[in-house]
C-alpha cells in the first residue's frame, strides 16, 4: 500500500493548501510518502502526480535530484557519517572504517536484518563537533569508536526508539496553521493589490 493513507491524504491536502501553486508541495509530500513507506515507491509518485496534477515524470525528475529520497527499501536506521573536511581532519575516515566493521557492511549498503543502512555523507553543519554522524538525520557529535558501538547497541535494543523515529520521519511534530489564523495562499495571478498594511503612497512615489 504505497498510495497515501486517508489520514496522510488529509495532511497532504493541508500542506498543499499552504502554497500559492500546488507543485510547491511536491518535496514535502515526497517526505510524507517516505515517512509512510520508508522509501518512495513508483505507485506513491503516481499518486503525488495525481494530487498535484503534474506528470509522474515531473515527480521522479524532482525526487531523484535530492539525496534524502530513497527509491528502494533502506534500513530502519540510516546512519550518515560525515566525510567532509572538518570531520575528515578529526578522524571521519577511521570512524567510517570502524562503522563498516561493526555493522559488517560496506558504506552504501544495508544490514541483512534491514536494521541499518550506512552511508558516507557530506557536511552536516556540525563541523565544530567533528567527527559527526546522523541517525535518520539526528546528529551525534564528537563520535568515538566506542560511542559508535554504544549507539548501535542502543538502537538495536530500542533504547533510542523514543528519540529516533524510523527512517522517513522528518519531524516528530508538524506545523499546523489554524484555519482562523490562516491568511491564505492565493495564486499570484489572482493578486493585484499590495498588502493591507502597506500605505499605498509608498508604491505610488
Amino acid at each position: 500500500m504505497s498510495r497515501l493513507t486517508d489520514s496522510n491524504l488529509a495532511i497532504a491536502r493541508e500542506i498543499i493548501s499552504r502554497y500559492p501553486r500546488k507543485k510547491s508541495a511536491l518535496i514535502p509530500l515526497l517526505h510524507l510518502t517516505q515517512e509512510q513507506n520508508g522509501y518512495v515507491t513508483d505507485e506513491a509518485m503516481r499518486h503525488l502526480a495525481e494530487l498535484l496534477d503534474i506528470t509522474p515524470a515531473e515527480v521522479i525528475g524532482t525526487a531523484t535530484f535530492y539525496e534524502m529520497f530513497k527509491f528502494e527499501p533502506v534500513g530502519t536506521y540510516v546512519i550518515n557519517v560525515c566525510q567532509t573536511l572538518s570531520c575528515a581532519l578529526l578522524g571521519a575516515g577511521n570512524l567510517m572504517h570502524h562503522a563498516e566493521a561493526k555493522l559488517g557492511i560496506k558504506s552504501g549498503s544495508t544490514t541483512e536484518d534491514g536494521m541499518f543502512t550506512l552511508e558516507a555523507a557530506e557536511c552536516q553543519a556540525a563541523c565544530t563537533e567533528a567527527p559527526t554522524l546522523q541517525v535518520n538525520y539526528r546528529h551525534r557529535y564528537r563520535v568515538t569508536t566506542d560511542d559508535f558501538d554504544q549507539l548501535v547497541d542502543d538502537l538495536r535494543s530500542g533504547a533510542l526508539s523514543g528519540e529516533i523515529p524510523p527512517h522517513g520521519t522528518l519531524g516528530r511534530n508538524r506545523q499546523h496553521i489554524p484555519a482562523d489564523k490562516f491568511v491564505g495562499a492565493p495564486d499570484p495571478d489572482d493578486v493585484t493589490e499590495g498588502p493591507a498594511w502597506i500605505p499605498v503612497k509608498v508604491e505610488s512615489t
Binding site: 513508483d42 509518485m45 503516481r46 506528470t55 509522474p56 515524470a57 515531473e58 515527480v59 521522479i60 525528475g61 531523484t64 535530484f65 535530492y66
Partner: peptide, 16 residues
Amino acid sequence: LIHFTQRGNETQVMTF
C-alpha cells in the same frame, strides 16, 4: 513525459 532525472554528473533524461 521525458524529464531530467538524477543530479550532477549522473543527470540523465528519462521517462517515468
